[in-house]
Amino acid sequence: MANILEIRDLCYAIEGRPILRGVTLDVAEGETVALLGRSGSGKTTLLKMVNRLLHPNGGEIRFEGKSSADWDPIRLRRRMGYVIQDAGLFPHWTVEANVGLVLKLENWPPSDARRRVEMLLDMVGLLPDEFAGRYPRQLSGGQKQRVGIARALAADPPLLLMDEPFAALDPITRFEMQRQFVELRRSFHKAALFVTHDVREALTVGSRIALFQDGALDLVLPPAEFLRAGTPEARAFLASLEPAGGPS
């Protein structure tokens, strides 16, 4: 399968302190790569480089076969959906306006945009009649994230960037959202980079898991193989799946 995203030897440092050390990673069309790692291991930095919110000190990112440095940053970002922890919804816009943001920026005719927004809300499990006119403050955490995902999918981008999108949700809602995300990913055939520090989440949503340690990739493996991985960092994460105190 063709690669939608190719990351080559990516380096980044702030005031001499390395954040990313030579990360190389490919993302194929339709696959979700879970970027797993401790806080500060560089996974969010990598995500922000993909849509050029940050600029690497070295290495290259190619998106749809073209170096990201050659993309117009505005065009590049509109080709990528972006979902963050507290959704980042515009508080002064309704759900409908939030979801239709990129459609408006891309000058879709309002009636087409409206149909598309209703379809997306339906897809993420929010009744358009009930939710389209609400403001973000009238939504629960889970509903906000659903709106955030619908917004990211609006202009049908081939790649989604998800930065710990479910981290602030209660465990039950989080589990539901993870399941729904996997279904959506299958039906839309989107590629995704999914940042998480939760190994269970990485195993659920990822087609592959890229494990970060101190700004470098420790390993990249499909979930089934990750469960048998032997590196100390992978074992540390897998140990978090065991109940505290170990098996009795």
Binding site: R77, D86, G88, P91, L101
Partner: peptide, 12 residues
């Protein structure tokens, strides 16, 4: 977060 998502969604 609102500002960042505005930029990341491709607003000028």
């Amino acid at each position: 977060a609102v500002r960042e998502s505005a930029v990341a969604m491709g607003m000028t």
